[in-house]
């Protein structure tokens, strides 16, 4: 779990876009850990949200993830 979290944070810190889809995060993690299952990545991402390191960004129809403090940080 800690390895996945690290891979997610590495991606979230360095990705070109400050908000990204789960799919893109999944691809980035799978590059480092090819055998990992999507469900495991989701669990790690949820843990990071609960630790307040990642945030959800929702348009209402679609949801993206972002690194807390990176890009849009205020309410709007």
């Amino acid at each position: 779990m800690e390895d996945i979290k690290k891979a997610i944070l590495d991606f979230a810190e360095t990705s070109k876009k400050t908000k990204f889809y789960f799919n893109d995060m999944e691809k980035a993690v799978k590059k480092v850990m090819p055998d990992i299952k999507a469900r495991e990545i989701k669990k790690a991402a949820t843990a990071l949200v609960n630790e307040e390191k990642l945030v959800f960004f929702s348009t209402g129809s679609t949801t993206m993830y972002g690194m807390k403090g990176r890009g849009q940080t205020e309410d709007h």
């Binding site: 949200v49 959800f56 960004f57 929702s58 348009t59 209402g60 949801t63 972002g66 309410d75 709007h76």
Partner: peptide, 20 residues
């Protein structure tokens, strides 16, 4: 309206839709 944003309730990624 400006639609969407980082609003939500703790631990949930849905159920709240930001609007400004």
């Amino acid at each position: 309206w400006k639609h969407g944003g980082i609003v939500g309730v703790f631990g949930y990624g849905g159920g709240v839709i930001g609007r400004y």
